[in-house]
């Protein structure tokens, strides 16, 4: 028997559909960082982003038979799941944590270096500022910005997972850009 060191997402997902927990672990390692950062950009909190990330992968496991891989990549679907988790379920992400079997506290025994903590606080302040404007967009446009501009999912792949046309998605992003320009312009004038 041969073992592939770098199985494709499609291979991982096929194994996942069959209940392969090792494949799930590999998928988590492959995409946890991307989901985590995507979640942060949606909620503006690194700690909530952790909860959303875990909830996303739990949903992925539960719905492994329903996932839509686009061009062989699981990432767009995972990011859409994360988006929906963040949108309607961020509080319940805490509840999802309740169902996670807790590991011993020793895992958390090491403190963050001070500069890392300070950097993350700066991130949260910066993100809060960005989100204060982005949250004024219609939800569909807001999520299009997060998916395509911030997380870099190609338009075609994002459109396929969202179930809309690529033209419609590009239009949302375009409208969002225009709206954001107006919002920032107005805000800057008011500050001056």
């Amino acid at each position: 028997m041969t073992t592939r060191l770098h199985p494709s997402d499609q291979e991982l997902w096929s194994a996942l559909a069959g209940g392969d927990e090792a494949a799930f672990g590999q998928l988590f390692e492959r995409y946890a960082r991307a989901v985590y950062n995507h979640a942060f950009r949606l909620c503006g909190s690194w700690s909530v982003a952790e909860d959303i990330t875990q909830a996303t992968f739990l949903v992925a496991w539960r719905r492994r038979g329903e996932a839509r891989l686009v061009d062989g990549s699981a990432l767009p679907w995972l990011l859409v799941v994360a988006t929906n988790t963040a949108r309607t379920e961020w509080r319940s992400a805490r509840r999802w944590r309740a169902l996670l079997r807790r590991v011993p506290q020793e895992w958390e025994a090491h403190a963050d270096p001070a500069d890392e903590v300070a950097g993350r606080l700066d991130d949260e302040r910066r993100m809060a500022s960005v989100l204060s404007a982005v949250r004024r967009l219609p939800r569909a446009e807001r999520e299009a910005v997060a998916l395509c501009l911030w997380s870099g999912v190609p338009y075609a792949e994002a459109a396929a997972v969202l179930g809309i046309s690529e033209v419609a998605l590009r239009s949302r992003v375009s409208r969002a850009r225009a709206r954001l320009a107006r919002i920032f312009s107005t805000d800057n004038r008011q500050e001056q």
Binding site: A32, Y36, F40, E50, R101, V103, W107, H110, D112, A133
Partner: peptide
């Protein structure tokens, strides 16, 4: 409206989250 640069999940958090997920 660019967000801050991406960050890694802290290694110990990756380990904890992975362990909790797999255990669950």
């Amino acid at each position: 409206f660019d967000p801050p640069p991406e960050r890694d999940l802290p290694a110990r958090q990756v380990t904890r989250m992975r362990a909790e997920l797999l255990s669950t």
